[in-house]
Computed example of a mutant assay.
Amino acid sequence: MPALLLASSSPYRRELLSRLRLPFTCASPDIDESHLPDEPACALVKRLAEQKARALAALHPGHLIIGSDQVAVLADRVLGKPGGFAQAREQLLAASGRSVTFLTGLALLNVVSGECQVDVVPFTVHMRPLSAAAIERYLLAEQPYDCAGSFKAEGLGVTLFQSTEGADATSLVGLPLIRLVDMLLAEGVQLP
Rank of each mutant, 00 (worst) to 15 (best):
H126F: 03
C42R: 15
V120D: 06
C42A: 15
A41W: 05
S171A: 15
L17S: 05
E136V: 09
K52M: 04
V100S: 09
R137I: 10
L172V: 12
G83M: 07
A169I: 13
C26A: 08
L103W: 07
V181R: 09
E33Q: 13
A86L: 13
R77N: 14
L103A: 04
D69E: 13
I66G: 01
V112N: 15
L5K: 13
N110C: 13
G188A: 06
I65D: 01
L92A: 13
V45C: 07
A132L: 13
C42Y: 10
A57Q: 12
L139F: 07
C147K: 15
F123Y: 15
A94D: 04
G157Y: 08
R21D: 12
S113C: 06
G80I: 04
L172I: 11
E165N: 11
L185Q: 14
E142Y: 11
A43Y: 05
A94H: 00
L22Y: 09
Q143F: 01
Q117M: 03
C116S: 09
L156A: 08
G62S: 10
S171F: 08
K152N: 07
K152M: 08
A86Q: 14
L109G: 01
I31W: 04
H63Q: 05
M127S: 04
R179E: 15
A49V: 14
S99L: 00
I135T: 02
A107L: 03
P11I: 06
A169L: 02
S131N: 09
G114W: 12
E142V: 07
G174T: 10
T101M: 03
V125C: 13
A148G: 04
E136S: 12
G105D: 10
S18D: 12
L175A: 07
L130A: 12
R47Y: 06
H126M: 02
E142W: 10
K81W: 10
E33M: 10
L92C: 11
P29K: 02
V118Y: 04
G84P: 08
V173H: 02
D168K: 07
E33A: 03
D146R: 01
S18M: 07
L36W: 09
A55C: 06
A141M: 00
D30P: 04
V100Y: 06
L109Y: 03
G114D: 13
S8I: 06
D76R: 14
E136Q: 06
S8L: 07
S10K: 09
P192D: 11
T104E: 05
K52N: 11
A148S: 07
R137N: 13
G114S: 10
S131F: 05
E136P: 03
L172H: 00
V100T: 11
V71W: 08
A167I: 14
E33H: 06
L5A: 07
G188N: 09
L184K: 05
G105L: 02
A94E: 10
A58Y: 00
S9M: 01
F85W: 02
A141F: 00
R77Q: 15
E187D: 14
V125E: 11
G166D: 09
C42T: 15
L56E: 12
S10P: 07
R128N: 08
